[in-house]
Design a protein around this nucleic acid. Sequence first.
DNA 1: TTGTAAGCGTTATCAT
DNA 2: ATGATAACGCTTACAA
Lengths: 346, 346
Amino acid sequence: VKKLNITISDIAKELGVTPSTVSRALSNSPRVNEKTRKRIQAAALKMGYQQNVMAASLRKGTSGSIGMIVPRINRHFFSNAVSGVERIVNPAGYNLLIYQTEESYAKEVEGINTFLKNRVAGIIISLATETQDFSHLQSLVDRGVPLVQFDRVNGDIAGPKIVNDNFNGGYLAVKHLIKAGFKRIAHLTGATHMNVYRDRMNGYIEALKDHGIAFDPAMVFDNAITRESGIEAVSKILETKPDAIFCAGDYAALGVMEELKRLKITIPSQMGLAGLANEPFSEMISPSLTTVELNAFEIGNRAANALIQMLEKTEYVMNHTEIVPVRLIVRESSVRQPMVLLNEKL
Amino acid sequence: VKKLNITISDIAKELGVTPSTVSRALSNSPRVNEKTRKRIQAAALKMGYQQNVMAASLRKGTSGSIGMIVPRINRHFFSNAVSGVERIVNPAGYNLLIYQTEESYAKEVEGINTFLKNRVAGIIISLATETQDFSHLQSLVDRGVPLVQFDRVNGDIAGPKIVNDNFNGGYLAVKHLIKAGFKRIAHLTGATHMNVYRDRMNGYIEALKDHGIAFDPAMVFDNAITRESGIEAVSKILETKPDAIFCAGDYAALGVMEELKRLKITIPSQMGLAGLANEPFSEMISPSLTTVELNAFEIGNRAANALIQMLEKTEYVMNHTEIVPVRLIVRESSVRQPMVLLNEKL
DNA sequence: TTGTAAGCGTTATCAT
DNA sequence: ATGATAACGCTTACAA
């Protein structure tokens, strides 16, 4: 049986040098002879040495890991945001710890505590739906832990925030519905304490105003962002006699579509429909769903870059908000004339 | 400005005790007076103490983290497997590090090295498609790092393996197609060096045999597991004049469905179709896709439990394979009579 | 019940 | 260019 973990002292003994020299050689310090460096690196490789980063970080006072907290990784948006962060932080020499909150405030706090215990270099977070108290974030800032928020953010906490252009997402979707001939547009939104849904709704309102349509609060339904809540909301929506529905998320739109089909209300001829998020299924369902694409990977990139900047220049805390553009994707659910006419040219 | 990181010595000084007492109090050791424990815990809370797990693990010689390596987290199966692992290891006091290989062998090796450097307590892995050399896994075993493989595994490496019942998945899908009246069933599979696809194909072959249908190797097409490769494969498949197609994955089945639609070949009347994996989209597309459900969460649970068992009783390395049952889900793509007849009773 | 002291594996500051 | 040594924050014999 092999020795389980080789240390620099093992290598030092083997080669008749001291641990300090080995340390220097392995970290490519210039303060070591070229020849001995080669010799040491060769021995390290042969002996299967793997640096003990816990010891190194303990000594250096800072770890090489970054913590990322997301509601759940099985959502298209978040898994791509994670990949976007990895693409930046891994080459920069950090490794990423991921924590899922499953929309729970308690888990969010737990995740932050886990990260603190692990002395992560910084934290990237998108808030849980449940989260309405932000003292856990404030305490991070107070401790001097670099913090970047993305997507679901709280404006009162200092530090960079990277968000989708949710306002424009709502605006573009509703403007499109209006141009497509719909006049009474209902809106399904999420929990209105969250920036993402508030902003999308404001875009909806602004688009109505800009096209001379009166905003009717009775046509807005909140806490309806899942497939199930979309299904349930339909009967109430129909009471307001809409000719189209704009959902703040694709899952809600999916539920709405299913329920409308069940009620034999055809889309888009009897009811226009648009979602937001461009979930993978939205192009596969029938009719395909008009929606707004979010660039999750780009958001991950930017969040990671902002964090790395904070880590490298510790002078001051940046406090800006980056708004990442979104893109309207028109599909069958909102276009009354046959799609072939639109797609013929492609 | 607050002191950034409180240590047990800070607390000790504050209360006029020694660091050892504080350590004992915080770890709920019985070797400390009830009163002083309360006093210390209160102070720790008030001062915002967070244990430095790097220092603790360095001293204890083992870290409280578990590393998990998956091809990608934006796949339904893997993100649920991750959640399944978390559900077990978090309450057990471990935290999970996740590494995505994106199907790359180089990244897989890199991930393992990162985990070694972090002295993870154990590793849970599902192999990348590219991986055909397993020495990196063998060296983990040699080092005595507890290793659990799941889903995509290599039988030559010691240790627990948790897999889907892929053979039965293939068998059930094909048996169903035969019972539904299809006779010439083509098969789209993945890279045949991988256990998952080999087993599914063997299930396909066995089902044919058991129902007196000759197996024709010309009707099997490999390296076709993505949506794109599904689309591309269709023309070659059609040359073999099948009346049904069994795809080893839902994404390939989706591609096949799209291409068949484009060619005006109707499903299921002109061509039966079945996938495997029960991706979320498979019930949403039209026609809905007959497929085989995999219990990713359960697999994650079992992998985590196996690992924790290895961590707790270090006496010997278990070397068993757990096969997790799968379930056939019949939908429109494989049933020629109207689905209403089948579903009427529900 | 509490204190003392050593040591986990590194790196950084000295000194040589 | 290399060596000796201290220190990072914690846990755990061992002592008291």
